[in-house]
Amino acid sequence: MLRHAATSTLLLFKNRLVVLRLLRQFFVTTGQISQFAARYWREVWFPPYEFQELLKQCFLIGNKSMALVGTTGFIMGIVLTLQTRPTLIEFGAQSWMPAMVGIAIVREIGPVLTALICAGKVGSGIGAELASMKVTEQIDAMEVSGTNPFKYLVITRVTATTIMIPVLVIMSDLISLGGSAIVENLKGGVSFTLYFSKVLEFLQFGDLLPSIIKSFFFGFAIGIIGCYKGYTSSRGTEGVGRTANEAVVIASLLVFVLDFIAVLVTDIFYEL
């Protein structure tokens, strides 16, 4: 009896140790990511600037994700319109469709959906690429050949995602609205001109600006997480896959956390 109690206490103690270790690990990772991000902001201002590589990365990120982001955005616009149509018709409020879909897409669905897709596609890509470069000593090779790999690899990629995610968001917004307009045109006989003028009538600058600003943060988060995970990847080829996976998970989570904070902050400015 006493022994049983002793072992269970020991088990409890062990479990608590596990929890504490996980918590500590969480804080360590957060701290390292913060240091990594801080290093980005410290180094981004100073030459050498790798403009060519930056342009290449921008092109790669935009090109790689355009089709995917466009397709999902298009489908999202169609689905959102189809799903809400019956309810709006019930209230006789079909004419509110452009406003509703426009606001839903521009404020929330466009940025978050695009960011999540890019976290999956771009974030994992960057993570895996840098991790494999790390494993095969390519990062070291860069360093010994006189190129600062942090500048050449990390700063270009993070800057590229920070610039390109908002661009992709705007593109996704437009395509989503296009999908929605097609549904309205086919099912409700609303002309494209009317649809878009209605959207523009209801959308305000105050809707677009916060969503673009938060897209920049999403882009930065995706880039920095992918680079951090890849750059600090442990050796070994199986580490590459794990790195890509972790990069996606952390980046997606961070996108939601940032979105939450962004909505709270936006709320303040809306009321003013």
């Binding site: 494999s132 470069m133 095969t136 000593e137 390519q138 070291d140 090779a141 860069m142 010994v144």
Partner: peptide, 10 residues
């Protein structure tokens, strides 16, 4: 510096 795995940029 000649790296073990060649470390050519893929």
């Amino acid at each position: 510096f000649q790296f073990q795995g060649s470390a050519l940029y893929d």
